[in-house]
Structures are given as structure tokens and as C-alpha cells.
Simulated scan of single mutants.
Amino acid sequence: MPDHTPAIKIERFNESHIDGVTALYNDPAVTRQVLQMPFQSTEVWRQRLMADNERALKLVALHQGQVIGNLGLEGYSRIRRSHAGSIGMGVAVAWQGKGVGSTLLAAALDVADNWMNLHRVELTVYADNEAAIGLYRKFGFEDEGLFRDYAVRDGQWVDTLSMARLRTRGKT
């Protein structure tokens, strides 16, 4: 039986992806699930994403050359937090639930484990984003706490969940 799953390609972010990432995060349905402001310019994204930092991994998911997802993983620079890093991710609405988030997260966690030697990877997610929370739990993230009234979305205060994945020696 043929596989009908669309081909998803993961690449390190580069200059050619700026317009696609800008469009991704300027989609109101995506913006409402991340901590980005709406209507950001291409130049804002260029400055944010083009900064060269060895402790930051910036990935895009592509389908037929079009940006359909983005993930950033950044290891902390403070010496006492150098074992930890944080993740932020966005997936185009039409591609949610189709493996894009899983593909991005698997790639980032491979780098976190095998190249950055991160023991702890953490994130925050809106407490009502059940699909994202389910994805993170599938990859071993556990709930650590609730931040009440953490951010404004649609003119309302919303809670976020703090989650983390701890890696033990030799396994995730």
C-alpha cells in the first residue's frame, strides 16, 4: 500500500526562509498560539532569526519548498544553566496534526541529546492547547507548573503550562 504522507523536509533556517517564517507567524491562527505579536515585518524576523549563535538551533519544516513549520531550540548561556535549553515552535494551521510538529521536535531533540548534550529541555505552552500538549507529552515532556494569567491573547489573560523533558544518561 503506498504511503500518502506528504514529504516533509527539515532544514536549518537560512535567509531564503525569512518570507515563509514571516507568513507563518503572521497567520492569526498561528499567532494566537505562540508568544509572537501579529503583523511582524520581514525585517523583524530577519534580525531575530539571522543572529548567529552556536547555542541556537533554528529549523524549518518545508513541503515543496514552502515553510510549513518552524522550531527554535536554544541552549542557555549561563554556566549554571548550560545543561538546559528551551524550545519554541509554530506549525501552519493546514499542517497541524500531520506530523510536522513531530518531525521538527524529533530533529531538535536529537540535536539536544547528541550534539548539545542537554539534560533538560523546557517550554511553555498555552494551557488550553491540548494538541500541542499531547505532542510534547508524546516526546517525554512532563508538566511542571501552571503560570496563571501569563499572557494576553484575544484581549484575555491566559494561563500557560510549564513543561520539561529530562534526559538521563544513555536514554531520553
Rank of each mutant, 00 (worst) to 15 (best):
I79R: 10
Q40H: 11
E74D: 15
Q47L: 09
G69N: 03
N70Q: 10
T31Q: 14
E74A: 08
N26R: 02
S41T: 07
N53G: 06
L62M: 07
I87E: 04
R32C: 06
G65K: 03
G88H: 03
H83E: 15
D52W: 00
P38V: 14
L49R: 00
R81I: 07
L49N: 04
D52F: 00
L59T: 14
V34Q: 06
V44L: 08
L73E: 05
Y76D: 11
M37H: 10
G90C: 09
A84T: 04
P38Y: 04
A92E: 07
E43L: 12
V60A: 08
D52T: 01
A61P: 06
P28R: 01
N26F: 02
T31N: 13
L62K: 02
S82V: 05
Q96A: 06
R55A: 10
G72W: 00
V60N: 03
N26I: 05
L35N: 03
L62R: 10
D27M: 14
I79W: 08
W95S: 11
N70A: 15
Q66W: 02
Q33K: 11
S86A: 05
A84R: 02
M37R: 07
G97W: 00
A84M: 04
F39G: 11
R81T: 09
E43D: 10
Y76H: 08
A94V: 12
V44Q: 07
A94M: 05
K98L: 06
M37T: 14
W45K: 11
A56R: 02
R80Y: 12
A84F: 01
V34S: 05
K58G: 08
F39Q: 04
I87C: 09
T42R: 09
M50W: 00
H83Y: 03
E54L: 13
L24S: 03
G90A: 09
G75H: 02
I68G: 06
A61G: 08
R78C: 13
H63L: 04
R55F: 05
H83V: 09
M89W: 01
L49T: 02
R48A: 13
G88T: 07
L24Q: 12
A84L: 02
E43G: 05
E74C: 14
W45F: 12
Y76A: 11
G69I: 01
Q40C: 08
V44M: 13
V44H: 03
V91I: 06
S41G: 13
